[in-house]
């Protein structure tokens, strides 16, 4: 990869601007585009193949040679999937969970972050350390005791188990705290002297100032909850509680030869997230770049 850096060039004459990048000599530029092109194809081709397959007949999906373009798309796949599966139930459950979890995570996360960054009290930093410490503990290693707790709370096999699982994550607290640290304490002190209550400061000073961070957290939580497969797999046994991911997986096992329909279902499960991602890309990327997504 290092060969892509420019070779020792003639003495530099032009002044570099703020951007670190320099114009490459022609040959290297062509190579660069070539690599970029290959990488883009490698990333996109599986998605393209998914969409194309979703519009084929079953036999066509694995036809040899591969038909990269479907000449007459089978749109009826998109009607059949609703008939053959419980897609409506799955989508409904997923939308409900995504909405509730996101609301709770954003609220409790930003609320706690205010306590952690703007109220000074003894023991605060130790508590925060406990939060951050558990971020490094793999969920896989405590999912068994967590399941025992959930059983005791009688939350298993209810949608609330997923809410409980996702809504109180340390990630939201961490992310919001990072952002609150950039807001000067003087501003908060000034508001205190003006006689504002702490809750008032949170509501009317902090929340409006932290809109970009709230947007990032909202998007990241939304995507994580929508895509979560393990949580629902462990906790949701009744089919009428299934989410899109769980439903799709069971559809795949049940109709394992219905290749086209499986791809149709996959497209439907991915589509909402792609739309949300494209709409809020900037916040999403910023949020990920500052904290890292859990996964």
């Amino acid at each position: 990869m290092t060969t892509l850096l420019q070779p020792p060039a003639a003495p530099v004459l032009e002044q570099d601007t703020a951007r670190p990048a320099r114009r490459l000599p022609k040959l290297w530029r062509i190579l660069g585009y070539l690599t970029l092109g290959v990488a883009a194809v490698a990333v996109l081709l599986p998605f393209y193949w998914m969409v194309m397959s979703s519009l084929k007949t079953n036999n066509e999906v694995f036809a040899i040679p591969v038909r990269w373009i479907t000449t007459d798309p089978v749109w009826s796949n998109y009607a059949d999937i609703w008939r053959k599966s419980e897609m409506t139930t799955w989508l409904g459950n997923t939308v409900f969970l995504s909405a509730v979890v996101t609301l709770l995570q954003v609220f409790t996360g930003s609320f706690a972050a205010y306590g952690f960054s703007k109220v000074r009290f003894p023991g605060r930093d130790v508590l925060f350390l406990a939060y951050i410490g558990t971020l490094a503990v793999p969920w896989q290693s405590y999912m068994v005791p967590q399941f025992v707790m959930m059983t005791k709370l009688q939350l298993t096999d209810t949608l609330w188990s997923i809410v409980a699982l996702q809504a109180f994550g340390a990630l939201g607290v961490f992310m919001m705290k990072q952002f609150y640290e950039t807001i000067p304490d003087e501003l908060i002190d000034a508001a205190r002297i003006d006689g504002m209550s702490e809750f008032g400061i949170y509501r009317r000073v902090m929340l409006p100032l932290s809109k970009p961070a709230l947007a990032s957290l909202t998007l990241i939580t939304l995507v994580t909850t929508w895509n979560d497969y393990m949580g629902p797999l462990l906790y949701l046994r009744s089919p009428d509680l299934w989410t899109v991911q769980l439903g799709l997986k069971s559809f795949i096992s049940q109709y394992n030869a219905e290749y086209a329909l499986i791809m149709t279902g996959s497209v439907l499960s991915v589509l909402p997230i792609v739309v949300i991602f494209l709409a809020g890309q900037r916040y999403f990327v910023e949020g990920v770049a500052t904290t890292g997504l859990k996964g």
């Binding site: 951007r19 320099r22 998605f47 929508w226 497969y229 799709l248 499986i262 991602f277 890309q281």
Partner: peptide
């Protein structure tokens, strides 16, 4: 590569993120 002045860099940055936001079930399938 993306840190260079090439056209289409913004597009690729978006595209490269797709696999990461796509659900594991769909990707595995």
């Amino acid at each position: 590569l993306l840190n260079r002045k090439l056209r289409g860099v913004g597009f690729f940055r978006t595209v490269a993120f797709f696999p990461y936001i796509t659900s594991i079930v769909a990707i595995a399938q």
